[in-house]
């Protein structure tokens, strides 16, 4: 049954991808790529990657769709019709696909316990997590502690994207602000539309609550700072769409957003530095408490909070920067 379901989902994934590329209506492309992300998330779930599925759904289907739609509102809704045929590129791409498919025939058998992936490093993580960190979710343990340096880098990738968008777009309305017929956010929001307003208002507290649950439950189940940050940002973006962008800015002003972006990243870094000050290495959380296991858990909790704060701040800043450009 799972096998048939797997085949079905993968085929659907391919069909969606082709439709995304084929459609000349950019709005349709964006909506389809949201669907694509959801399908991909289901696939990840079938492959036992619960954390990744949650992230792909929140980031791919949620945040990236919102960002793409905001950009479309400012730029263009339709793609120009292609002027020349692209047979040459198509042939090259098909040949490359066949080469890739041929090469994958040499891959280790799917889900084989004897494959090298499952032999060398992975079992150590599964064993060591219980002993050294004592939390159920091994993914969180690897992400936050064993490979915490990667995650620090990842926070700074998000940070860079955030300051990059602010650098490019600033916070002022752009030259298209006057003439643009598509309004991304009405200053009055969707107050005149009864159904979105009622349903949206009911949803926001639950999304926020779920976001906080995902943030603080990441050590026990799927979740963590990135997913939580995306969810909390999504709730506030929904609020901005319903009540108008200015109301959202009243709740969290731009200066606070900048503080969140910098503060979360710094929080992560400072926890790492404590490792050095307390006589061990950077990002060693064991020394944070007299009991190394408790120290690890404490460190994970704080860095996940740092991640969540920065991600929320960056996503909201990017949304506001895009929205300010499209305002009339």
């Amino acid at each position: 049954m799972t096998v048939i379901f797997g085949f079905f989902l993968l085929t659907l994934l391919l069909i969606t991808a082709v439709a995304i590329v084929q459609s000349q209506n950019l709005f349709v492309s964006v909506m389809l790529s949201g669907m694509f992300s959801l399908l991909l998330a289901v696939n990840f779930f079938l492959l036992d990657a619960a954390d990744v599925a949650l992230t792909e759904a929140a980031v791919g289907a949620g945040i990236s769709t919102v960002l793409l739609l905001s950009a479309l509102a400012i730029t263009a809704k339709h793609e120009k019709a292609p002027s020349s045929s692209r047979v040459g590129a198509l042939i090259i791409v098909i040949i490359a696909t066949l080469v890739l498919i041929y090469a994958t025939l040499g891959n280790p058998q799917f889900a084989d316990p004897n494959a090298p992936v499952h032999q060398h490093v992975a079992p150590w993580y599964l064993d060591k997590t219980a002993e050294a960190i004592d939390i159920p979710n091994v993914v969180t343990a690897v992400l936050g502690s064993f490979r915490g340096y990667d995650t620090l880098g990842e926070v700074f990738v998000v940070f860079t994207a955030g300051i990059g968008v602010l650098f490019l777009l600033g916070t002022q309305p752009g030259p298209f602000a006057q003439s643009n017929p598509f309004k991304l956010t009405d200053p009055k929001g969707l107050r005149h539309y009864l159904i979105p307003r009622v349903v949206g208002r009911m949803l926001i507290p639950f999304i926020l609550l779920f976001g906080l649950y995902v943030q603080f439950h990441g050590e026990y189940g799927p979740g963590g700072g990135f997913q939580a940050g995306a969810l909390i940002a999504a709730a506030i973006i929904l609020f901005a769409l319903l009540e108008g962008e200015n109301s959202a800015l009243k709740v969290i002003p731009r200066s606070v957003l900048i503080g969140l972006i910098a503060g979360g990243a710094l929080l992560y870094g400072v926890v790492g530095l404590f490792g050095i000050f307390l006589g061990s290495n950077f990002l060693d959380y064991s020394v944070l408490s007299s009991n190394p296991v408790k120290g690890q858990q404490m460190g994970l909790l704080i860095i996940e909070a740092g991640v969540g704060i920065t991600v929320t701040g960056v996503l909201l800043s990017i949304f506001h920067a895009f929205a300010a450009r499209g305002k009339f």
Partner: peptide, 25 residues
């Protein structure tokens, strides 16, 4: 020395952690 041994990571995190401070100035 103890401080010396941290130099490889300080090489990266000194500029990295200064960046969030700079945007606040």
């Amino acid at each position: 020395t103890a401080f010396h041994s941290h130099l490889p990571v300080l090489q990266v995190i000194v500029p990295m952690l200064t960046a969030p401070l700079v945007i606040l100035l």
